[in-house]
């Protein structure tokens, strides 16, 4: 599982995050709207996962670990 909720309440995205993670991430965010998302450890974000982040705009911890997203998406629109 590349998305999980840590005991400290943070939602963590790790490694390669495939499309399936979009649903899990959304469910976690729906259940814990205040939880920040730590995406520093993710190496690849599927568009569907990124879309959840764009739509819900949770608080995020650190810079996105996916360098491409960091360069092209996160720097501008988030």
């Amino acid at each position: 599982m590349s998305v999980r909720r840590h005991d400290n309440g943070q939602i963590i995205l790790e490694g390669h995050c495939p499309a399936e993670d979009a649903e899990t991430l959304l469910q976690l965010l729906q259940a814990n709207p205040e939880s920040p998302v730590d995406w520093t450890q993710c190496s690849y974000l599927h568009t569907a996962v990124l879309q959840v982040i764009l739509a819900v705009r949770p608080a995020r911890i650190g810079a996105c670990g996916d360098a491409w997203v960091r360069q092209w998406v996160a720097g501008d629109r988030l």
């Binding site: 499309a19 959304l26 709207p33 739509a55 819900v56 501008d76 629109r77």
Partner: peptide, 20 residues
């Protein structure tokens, strides 16, 4: 590059994660 929403985002409770 610009990535934007095509239509307004629904509230999280109504979001369909698999509808692009």
């Amino acid at each position: 590059l610009n990535v934007e929403a095509r239509g307004a985002w629904p509230p999280p409770a109504e979001l369909d994660p698999y509808a692009c």
